[in-house]
Design a binder for these strands. Structure first.
Lengths: 342, 342
DNA sequence: TTGAACATGGCAAACGTTTGCCTAAACTGT
DNA sequence: ACAGTTTAGGCAAACGTTTGCCATGTTCAA
């Protein structure tokens, strides 16, 4: 054990209630009450003296002692599938800011989309008395089911609660994915596309499925005779998936004149495939993405995309969490989206 | 106070030493010792019984109780300036993985490059008994100075310890920025560039300054008669800076045939400016970046860049941290970089 | 037979906080 | 003057853990 752990009390940084109490000549209880704003239980002079000392010595209540006592920990855990994805980073950043504004500290855990890691973090955070959980694109897992069953405050982002059915769905922040897909379809039709296609990962998450379905349904509705080609690709991430799917698409029947990429990263994969296979983007093949990564405006002028307001997610997530804790949850929050033409 | 906080003991998820002790008919101390691997202090039968119960009930020591006692918290705080930057996200992701492998939990805090927020997080994490701090691109601040002075385990990433001088520099993980700049210069010369330029943010961080200096020094060394144009741009982030700097560059004297962008984001800003002002990239104006953002391979085929192995940072950072805690720090770690031609 | 060594394990303090309950003293009304 | 109430504040338990020290009981050697 190192000195800064074992002897930390000798350091001036960490003063406890007991230090203040000793110096003020009162009991720990009195200091605690005054520090917590319960001013009616001590004489005005005591209150003044203690408050002065608190300010002077810079006392700040120790969150660990508080947590242990069973009170609040001011800790909220966010479990996200991978920080590399710019969309996740945007959600994490905005949520962090909103939580800080609400007086919480956010712990960010990277689950790599693995149920076992998700469970491990869920356990670790629970035993640190996290007061809430934010699950971005959650996967089904045993501990998650336990959390939901126990009624712990969990907010789901992007993907809905996999165990929501019997318990009323739970808190959710996201967008209307079917409508986003439909908007993308409208855009391609508007551009005069006649032979559209859609690419998607080999295993479909609910989010991606909804986007693809919304896209196809809208096309069928507006152009009943139009056929929509479809290709899937495997890969560790959406970049690889998009690349593989695009290659398989062009191998099967050449370049379509428009293609839905249900995430921007897949569009990037398509772009690379086009570069290698001589497809001209967007002239010959017009992609439309969903996400609208912030970098698009800078380096992907060829990509129109449905802008998802990830930067606005944080505020909504925190509002949901607070409502959940107060017992006044009002269901799911769907934020608006808007197609950005480039 | 909500039920899941106040009555959490009724839930099966949280069993304490006391629960096990009661069921085994031994004292809490005995269970604690056995749980911590001190098997010599109890009879074989007791050990077996307690171990069975621990496994059966799934007992896991409560980190909060441990922290309070003054032992380990297994908590490490990473303070990063902004998660939006893909380089930061890559560092965060790899560090998180390495810390998890070492049995730690990482708390990620977004300081927005503000000294006051950095201080707030430093305090908050200290009072949660964080066992170490990782400061990515740290700024100077009062609490940071206090931490360094007290000898708390701090690893600096990207930017060196601003208070390192009197205390021996401290732990640092990064690259040789001057050499990275020099490599970029070699590349441009190799491409036959004759009128190079460099753009950079209005206020120079030490990192950026070193890159720019390395670039200019190498050019002077190899081509003493060559003049290097220089433009700076202001903005909230490197994208805006790069854009503004590029505009000012071209306004002052047209497009250079090669330009150092000391971060990839600045190169993206330049790209956008070129798109608007009719500069042809990379044919007329060849940019060279530093970072080599992963997305470059997919959507920025026009950008050669010095690849910084951010994915490898995590392992080194954690090694540094452990060495620091063990008192065997061996100074700074400079990782290699390599220019990627596109 | 007696002392020492060892095996086994419990007690209690400590970490920092919160809070129900208790105890004085002072004050109020009659 | 006395009962009742308010004011001011302390005591101690509880949260979960770790660990130095103490207390038995057994074994062993001289």
């Amino acid at each position: 054990m190192e000195w800064w752990v074992s002897d930390r009390r000798r350091e001036p940084g960490q003063i406890s209630l007991a230090d203040i109490a000793a110096e003020a000549g009162v009991s720990v209880s009195t200091v605690s009450r005054i520090a917590n704003g319960d001013l009616g239980r001590a004489s005005a002079s005591t209150v003044a003296k203690v408050q002065r000392l608190i300010a002077e010595r810079g006392y700040r209540p120790n969150p660990v002692g508080r947590s242990l006592r069973g009170g609040e920990s001011r800790l909220v855990a966010m479990l996200a599938p991978n920080l590399d994805n710019p969309a996740m980073a945007a959600i994490a950043a905005s949520t962090e800011a909103a939580l800080r504004a609400a007086g919480y500290v956010m712990v960010l855990c990277d689950t790599h989309d693995r149920p076992d890691l998700q469970d491990e973090y869920l356990r670790a955070m629970r035993s640190r008395f996290a007061e809430g959980f934010i699950l971005v694109s959650a996967v089904a897992s045993a501990e998650l089911e336990a959390s939901v069953k126990r009624g712990e405050p969990v907010v789901f982002v992007n993907r809905r609660n996999p165990y929501g059915d019997p318990y009323g769905g739970g808190a959710f922040v996201g967008i209307d994915n079917r409508k986003a897909g439909a908007d993308a379809a409208d855009y391609l039709l508007d551009c005069g596309v006649r032979a559209p296609a859609v690419i998607h990962p080999a295993e479909l998450s609910s989010t991606i499925r909804e986007r693809v379905e919304g896209f196809i349904d809208r096309l069928r509705e507006k152009r009943p005779d139009m056929t929509v080609r479809r290709a899937e690709g495997a890969g560790a991430n959406h970049l690889d998936c998009g690349y593989a799917a695009a290659l398989s698409l062009v191998a099967a029947g050449g370049w379509p004149d428009g293609v839905l990429c249900p995430s921007d990263l897949m569009a990037y994969g398509l772009f690379r495939a086009a570069g290698e296979r001589g497809g001209r983007i967007p002239d010959d093949c017009r992609p439309v993405g969903i996400d609208d990564n912030d970098l698009n405006a800078w380096i992907a002028p060829w990509l129109s995309s449905v802008k998802i307001p990830y930067r606005a997610f944080g505020e909504q997530v925190v509002a949901c969490l607070l409502a959940l804790r107060a017992g006044t949850l009002d269901g799911e929050v769907l934020l608006g989206h808007e197609l950005v033409r480039r």
